[in-house]
Amino acid sequence: MGEVYALKIRIKFRKYGVMKFIGHLDMMRYFQKCMRRAEIDIAYSEGFSPHQIMSFAAPLGVGITSDGEYVDIEVHSSQSSEESIKKLNEVMVEGVEIISYRKLGDTDKNAMSLVAAADYKLYFKDDYEAPSVNYQEVYRKFFLNPSEILITKQTKKSERTFDLKKLVYDFQIDYDRKGKPVFYLKVSTGSSDNLKPELVLESFFKSEGITINPLSVQIHRIDVYGKNETGFVSLGEMGEIIE
């Protein structure tokens, strides 16, 4: 049998509402079933129990919402981006919305291997108050002024010390209508040097001797980026729209 032609497709989606309680593995299963329901002409692996060719950019933890999740698939044929988005959204549950469907080049790397950074927004949930500190001052003392921020991370077997400042590419504090702080972070993401945004927040408050309840903070991923010569590029900007 000759080589079967396959198109690489990158799908971008939002995850919100109660869907934040669905873990990564279950999201994968969910998407596999969506592909069948939407009758996407997805490619399967060889072998006795073939599986869909599908890979996710960066697993999202339980409890986190997102405006920028990515899954790459391979298809044998495809309708237009617009039509495919429509068909996929018809089979989605509330809480998952497809916002982009683009064709990648044959030699493009998959999203998972490209991931270098991600933007997050962290804020205190409605029922919770934020600690009352002078945020601008703590921000200066904790983040702006020091040349390095050494953090000791406890893993199952050992302790590891690393420089948090090297892994935080951007850090801004804004305020919502009620005056509660909203934290915007761009952090290193991917298989090496993966930094969880909540660790930044935890260290931020720890520098003031405050321990926060992790459940009081909502983490929201805004987008995921790869990196090239010019800097970070959103995974959603790669490839092209199928007309």
Partner: peptide, 23 residues
């Protein structure tokens, strides 16, 4: 809105058992 708050759903095993919203 889920009947249970985040702090409960995120503290128990498999919160997906209790949120409905299935296909």
């Amino acid at each position: 809105q889920p009947a249970l708050k985040d702090e409960i759903l995120l503290a128990i095993d498999k919160p997906a058992r209790y949120i409905g919203n299935e296909v």
